[in-house]
């Protein structure tokens, strides 16, 4: 009897998974294969209008990387700096929400999520207005004489500021969830055993929040490294990231094999990064 219910439950599990995974297979994993196939195509003529044929043209990759490697470096540098700052901003506020905010907890959560409903393009564009050289912020900072380039817009600094702004909620939410899950009785017990505030934080809260830090870092770093909106709206010509290159190769130049090779290289780097990260923590704590 027990065995039949168990096998029945397993069957149910697969039935629940099938629709969603069929979708993900057809429209996520299969397209990745399509991207790989496209990245190896060769051109039929001199211009992209002539079309491309299936081939195994690996030189698409060597060409793409030789020509565009600085854009990868810049993208990952910007994304890494933005991720570090997101973590520094997100940890205290998530901690406050989970342990101290009490009845204001959900109000704060709503205020963090609500900006999502006002177009992120418009919000990024608003930063463009705020940081513009005619604006009060730049005027004041120039009055103090602290801006090396005498402007903020069209600098790497502005791009990173935009990335931090746009991805901060993606760091706060997983961190908050993992901190909020911590059983408050653990802290009381530690207090009863004469642990100091510092000890309670470093021996209990910090280790239990690591899954949140890991998912937050992944959800910030990876999308940020492929982003091109912030570089496009807030950065200058020398601040373009790999996302900008992929977008223009695909949409404007229509050089599909080159663009696919660039995308797939980015995907490969991301997967290596994910693998290294997950080997450390496993998949159990992931979702």
């Amino acid at each position: 009897m027990a065995v039949t219910t168990r096998s029945k439950r397993i069957k149910t599990a697969y039935l629940l998974l099938i629709p969603g995974f069929a979708w993900l297979f057809f429209f996520f994993f299969f397209p990745l294969g399509s991207l790989l196939a496209t990245s190896l195509k060769r051109p039929l003529g001199d211009s992209p209008e002539a079309g491309f044929a299936y081939a195994l043209q690996f030189s698409n990759y060597s060409q793409a990387i030789a020509e565009y490697w600085p854009f990868y470096v810049r993208a990952f540098t910007f994304a890494a700096i933005a991720t570090v700052f997101c973590l520094l901003l997100a940890y205290p506020i998530s901690y406050y929400m989970a342990f101290k905010a009490k009845k204001y907890k959900y109000l704060m959560l709503v205020l963090i999520v609500a900006p999502f409903f006002a177009s992120f393009l418009l919000r990024t564009n608003a930063w463009k207005t705020i940081l513009s050289s005619e604006g009060a912020v730049v005027g004041f900072l120039n009055f103090l004489g602290v801006l090396p380039q005498e402007r903020i817009l069209s600098t790497s600094f502005a791009v990173i500021l935009g990335l931090i702004y746009n991805f901060l909620p993606f760091m706060i939410l997983p961190l908050f969830i993992s901190l909020d899950k911590i059983d408050k009785r653990l802290l009381e017990a530690a207090g009863d055993l004469y642990a100091t505030g510092n000890q309670r934080f470093w021996k209990i809260v910090w280790p239990l929040s690591i899954p949140g830090i890991v998912s937050g870092t992944i959800l910030t770093f990876i999308p940020a490294s492929g982003d091109y909106i912030n570089a496009e709206l807030l950065g200058g010509i020398s601040d373009k990231m790999i996302g900008n290159v992929i977008q223009s190769q695909f949409i404007i130049l229509r050089n599909y094999p080159q663009a696919s090779a660039l995308s797939f290289t980015l995907m490969a780097i991301v997967l290596v990064f994910l693998y290294l990260y997950l080997r450390k923590i496993g998949t159990k704590e992931l979702l």
Binding site: L32, D227, L274
Partner: peptide, 15 residues
Amino acid sequence: LSTPDVIVGASLLAL
């Protein structure tokens, strides 16, 4: 979830 948006968009376009 952790794939950059450009890749999700680009791979579907390729398909």
